[in-house]
Write a protein that binds this DNA or RNA. Structure first.
Lengths: 237, 237
DNA sequence: AAAGCCGATTGACGCAGATCAAATTTGACG
DNA sequence: CGTCAAATTTGATCTGCGTCAATCGGCTTT
C-alpha cells in the first residue's frame, strides 16, 4: 500500500520526553548531544498497511520506531514473501551498505517514526565513537536474532515454530509493556505464516491445536498463555 | 572434534604481507596503525574438523580467517544442526554482545586464523572511528546476507535452494580465486544440507538431477557449471 | 590387491505440511 | 441492524521432501 495519509508534524518535539528515550539509539547520548540531535529527526506518522520504505528504494533516511509495530520483509519475484522480522518501539531501521534498503517495511496498524535524513545523521555519528559503538551493538544484536531465526526456519517443525514465535514475541513485549500471559498479536495470520515459513492454514491449525490441548486460548487480537510450561516444552524440542 | 593438533606460531608475522591484507578488517588501517596492530594478533592453525570456538564459550578472542574454509553453525538440544554460514579468508569472526559466541565454528580442511585477544583488540579499535565503521560495515553486510538466507530457508524449494547455493558460493569464490565455472565444494553434503535446511539425500538427489539435465557436472571435490543460465533460471524462480 | 570404512548415491515408502475448497467469523459502513 | 468484503478456520486431498534401507565408490591400511 502506498503512503497516502502520511502525516508529518511540522512543530518540533523533544527527545528528552520521547517514549523510546531509554532504549533506542539515543540511549547512549548525553543531554548536550541530545539537544543537537533533536533538530535532526522529525516525527512522521503512517497509517495501517502503509509502506515506510521498500527494499529497492535508495536509502535517504534512517528511522527510529517510536510507536506501533512494523513488518520487515523481502519478496521473491513471483510474490512469495518472507518476513525477516517485526519492529517494535525503540528499533532502529535503515542501516545498510549498498545504499539501498535491503528489505521493505510496512506499518501494521498506526505507526510513529522518528525520521533522520541520511547525510546529517551520518555526519552526526561520524567521530562520535560511543554512538558508532551503539549502532554496532544494535547491528550485532540483530545479527544474533537473525541466526536464531535461521535455525527456526531451517530446522524446526510447524509446532515448534509457532510455540517459539509466541514465546519470543511475548518476551519482546515484556520489556515494553511488562510481563503478562496475554499476548497481543497485532499482525495477521498471513504475517505470522510468512515470518515462520509456513502457510496461513498451518498457522491457524496449529493455534487451534494448541488451544484444544489447553496450552493457549485464542482471544480477540491475540492469545492468552494458559499453560506456558507446555508451550515452552514444545518450543524447546 | 576437539582441537588436538592445533599449532601456534611463536614467531611474528607481518600484516603488510598478509594474504587478506586488502579485504579484511585491516583493509582500513594505515601503515602506522598496522605496525601497532601487528603485535595484537597471532597466527593459529587448525586441522580438518577441529572446532575453533563453540557457541556456549565465553568470548575471549576475535578471529580473522586467513586460509581455509570454516562452517558456522548452531545446534538444537536434540542434535539438529543449522549451518548459518561458511567463512572464507578475510572474514572476521567473534563479534557479539552477550559475551558469548552465539554460534560454533569448525575448520573444514586445514585453516589458519589470525587470533586477537578480546581486551587489547577492544582497546585498539576504541576511539578509532574508521575502524569502528569498518567493523560496522562487516556486521551490516552479514546482516544483509542473513536476511537473504532467511528467504531461502523459509520460502524456497529444494531445487531453488541448491541452485542458489551453488551460484552464491561461486560468487564468493570469484573475489578470492577469480571467475571460473569449476566450483570447488570443500564442505560435505551433510554441511550443504544443514546450510539449506534439507537432508543429505535431498541434496544428493538434486545434484544428480541437475547433472542429468546437463546444468552441472559433479566432479571430485566440487561441481562444474555446464549451463550457468539454466542454474540461474532455477535459482531465480 | 584385498579388506574395511566412510561419505555419497539410489530406491521404496510415508508423512508433515501445502494446496484446494468451503464454511464461518469479524469488521466496516450505510 | 443488515450487507458486503476480508480474515480466519476447517475439511479433504495431494505432494515434496523426509525417513529408512541398501548399495556404491573412493581412500586408507595392511
Amino acid at each position: 500500500m502506498k503512503a497516502s495519509v502520511t502525516m508529518i508534524e511540522p512543530n518540533g518535539h523533544f527527545c528528552s520526553d520521547c517514549a523510546v528515550r531509554g532504549i533506542a539509539v539515543c540511549a547512549s547520548m548525553d543531554p548536550a548531544e541530545l539537544r543537537e540531535f533533536e533538530h535532526l529527526g522529525r516525527r512522521v506518522h503512517f497509517g495501517a498497511g502503509e509502506t515506510v520504505f521498500s527494499e529497492e528504494d535508495i536509502t535517504t533516511s534512517f528511522y527510529n520506531l517510536l510507536e506501533g509495530v512494523m513488518r520487515l520483509y523481502k519478496l521473491l519475484p513471483d510474490g512469495r514473501r518472507q518476513i525477516v522480522g517485526f519492529a517494535l518501539p525503540g528499533d532502529f531501521l535503515g542501516m545498510n551498505l549498498s545504499g539501498r534498503h535491503n528489505f521493505s517495511a510496512d506499518a501494521i496498524g498506526a505507526v510513529t517514526v522518528c525520521q533522520f535524513a541520511k547525510a546529517p545523521f551520518g555526519r552526526f555519528i561520524e567521530d562520535r565513537p560511543h554512538l558508532l559503538k551503539r549502532i554496532n551493538e544494535l547491528a550485532i544484536r540483530e545479527l544474533s536474532q537473525a541466526r536464531d531465526h535461521m535455525v527456526l526456519l531451517g530446522r524446526r517443525s510447524a509446532d515448534e515454530k509457532v510455540a517459539t514465535f509466541l514465546l519470543g514475541w511475548r518476551e519482546r513485549l515484556v520489556s515494553l509493556k511488562g510481563a503478562s500471559n496475554t499476548v497481543p498479536l497485532p499482525m495477521s495470520r498471513q504475517d505470522i505464516a510468512d515470518y515462520l515459513g509456513l502457510t496461513i492454514e498451518t498457522v491457524s491449525r496449529t493455534f487451534t491445536k494448541l488451544e484444544r490441548h489447553g496450552a493457549i486460548e485464542i482471544i480477540h487480537g491475540g492469545i492468552s498463555l494458559r499453560d506456558p510450561a507446555r508451550v515452552e516444552a514444545l518450543a524447546a524440542a
